[in-house]
Design a protein around this nucleic acid. Structure first.
Lengths: 147, 147
DNA sequence: TCATATGGTCAAGCAGCTTGACCATCCAAG
DNA sequence: CTTGGATGGTCAAGCTGCTTGACCATATGA
């Protein structure tokens, strides 16, 4: 593999990720929610049973102060609530409100809609393979771009 | 395809793109250059024959003012020069210096190095296919994340 | 019981971008 | 030629989302 191909791969990845992220966010906004992509990444962590601000920070790859600010913002918009943490009086458990769940569902719908053009272009099987390959390459890591 | 799969695809794309970008930047820094990932995206546009700040802005998906600031920064670090534009006295052609070329080569090396683990994991053929699919999906667009 | 680790908050600062206003030059219609 | 709008660039101010640093309250283990 040549140098320039590696660069091209990176560019393609970035373009694809950016495109998809933008389309999903647009879709969420079109459904009447206001937000930025970071919300979605936060919701992904909060969804099952809630999380602390520090958990969220680790998940997003930011400081706990920044995570706390993000939570403030989400509270202000009515997407989450801070509840006392059962079993640790220092911590506060951040959980989705009904509106937060609605927004999460909207994001999932928008995501499905956003990948449709890809499915039409490559076929569902290919997209699935693509997804599989990607997950094998970068199994985890913060859901936040590192630059 | 289910909703959650579409979300997973997005997450995987972001993780992969972020991972690769970070590794390339680390590689460039390890080779003795200081910079942030945006430099690489700028170099990609400047490399062949130079470009104007406005060209660069369109390429990166930012305002011309921001592009101009980026060029200032690159000039300050010695990676590019502003030369008078032949044939348009308003414009200034931004071209790579020797140091800029060296940094570009370093980035290509780092990129090749960064995809090595992927090649070992999937095989070169699979990576090439992956790259092809991605380029068909998002043929162009700014080299800058959209969020 | 006390030292240290951990969750959270407050405050200040900064990087990188945006908007708005402006000037110099280009270019095409008259 | 002239002239009016489009285009490349710059200056200045401001904002958003993050960081660092200091600090308090609670938890935990020796």
């Amino acid at each position: 593999m040549e140098n320039s191909e590696a660069i091209a791969l990176t560019a393609a990845l970035l373009a694809a990720a950016g495109d998809l992220t933008k389309r999903i966010n647009d879709g969420v906004v079109a459904r009447g929610f206001e937000g930025r992509p970071a919300y979605g990444f936060a919701f992904a962590r909060l969804a099952p049973d809630g999380a602390t601000a520090t958990d969220l920070a680790a998940h997003l790859g930011i400081t706990k102060q920044a995570a706390s600010q993000l939570v403030d913002e989400l509270v202000r918009k009515g997407y989450v609530e801070r509840r006392p943490h059962p079993g640790d009086a220092r911590a506060r458990l951040v959980v989705l409100t009904e509106l937060g769940w609605a927004c999460t569902r909207a994001a999932e719908e928008a995501a499905l809609e956003a990948v449709q053009p890809w499915i039409e272009l490559l076929g569902e099987g290919e997209v699935r393979v693509l997804c599989d390959r990607l997950r094998r390459i970068a199994p985890y890591g913060p859901f936040r771009p590192a630059w």
